[in-house]
Design a protein around this nucleic acid. Sequence first.
DNA 1: AGAAAAAAATGAACTGGTTTAGGAAATTAA
DNA 2: TTAATTTCCTAAACCAGTTCATTTTTTTCT
Lengths: 195, 195
Amino acid sequence: MNDYTKIKNYVARHIQLTEEEETYFVSLLRTTRVKKKQFIVQPGFTCKYRSYVLTGAMRAYLIDNKAQEHTVAFAIEDWWISDYNSYINQEPATLFVEALEDTILIQIDYNAEQLLMETIPKFERFFRIITQRSFAFLQKRILSNLSKSAHERYEEFIEKYPSIANRVPQYALASYLGFSPEFLSKIRNKRTGKS
Amino acid sequence: MNDYTKIKNYVARHIQLTEEEETYFVSLLRTTRVKKKQFIVQPGFTCKYRSYVLTGAMRAYLIDNKAQEHTVAFAIEDWWISDYNSYINQEPATLFVEALEDTILIQIDYNAEQLLMETIPKFERFFRIITQRSFAFLQKRILSNLSKSAHERYEEFIEKYPSIANRVPQYALASYLGFSPEFLSKIRNKRTGKS
DNA sequence: AGAAAAAAATGAACTGGTTTAGGAAATTAA
DNA sequence: TTAATTTCCTAAACCAGTTCATTTTTTTCT
């Protein structure tokens, strides 16, 4: 039922564990099922978990003071998601993290993660490496936002993440790329043209 | 002459080292002086160093295909700077990293950093923690860019980093905040009004 | 299956920020 | 201390993307 093979493989891509260490790691995990539109994080509540998507799709977003949504991140199979600001500093969240589909998550809680790093220092390395990758990803996104037009950002996204582009609602994609849903509609129409 | 007190304090804020460990750490560092407008990283060349600013100011920026500059990061005293994508993956840089003033840098090279983490695993933790902080910082910047107007972003910046705002050229600040230098001029005039 | 709700499309009017072009001020170099 | 270069300012025309209002399509619920 609880299949931890995928998350074990994910970890194995970055560090090598003994069987014993792997067993210990898995003992700290828990599986959570969420229905579409359900939240796992909400502003005001401290985010307890770092979540790995086993199946399904999630997104993290902010609602600003003009009631506009801004998507910070998507996560599909084999990706992680959280309100990291809240999780890392164990302070109240500012983001919503919501299921875009019925989703199965594998979660580790903050205290367990700290314990894991103390018990198996290789995990210090693991979290360093995945954080570095996320950092590099965000930096590319900032540069893309600064240097490219809305249209170019859209083309770039569907080329790099076609599986996400066709799976998430358009308003969510627009709010990730930094323009209005109406404009996304306009772009898409120009693209297909009439046929 | 070479004063490593400040960088030792920086490290001590995150991990505790024995004297021996501290001595070893310092033995891996080198000091570099750069003149204003000099580059320490250029596109095409792999970035060898992670650089800590002892005195002076630096910035990292991209030049896009329309010959426009986009500032990724500033660094003043007690901050780090690099083309991290290039540094972490040891692949050719895409950014310029340039001195905005005559600057003294303390640098560690990639191989030394790897060795340091193997020799003193506490540094694995150190780099994890500072990368997490940078990650959180970039995420806030993305959200700010998505949810705020140019004017609001400017106000936010001068409030949070007055020491940087008054120290770097306006075109560099504009290219960091994501608008044209002309528009920054416009904002500044509206701000002071006539008096 | 049919009603209700949510998401996507369309189009016209609008606006925040850009572009272009010129001149003024400040830095740098000799 | 002057010439050259770089940075900054100003203002008008312009445009990429927004806003608003309405309709169509898709999804969800019973």
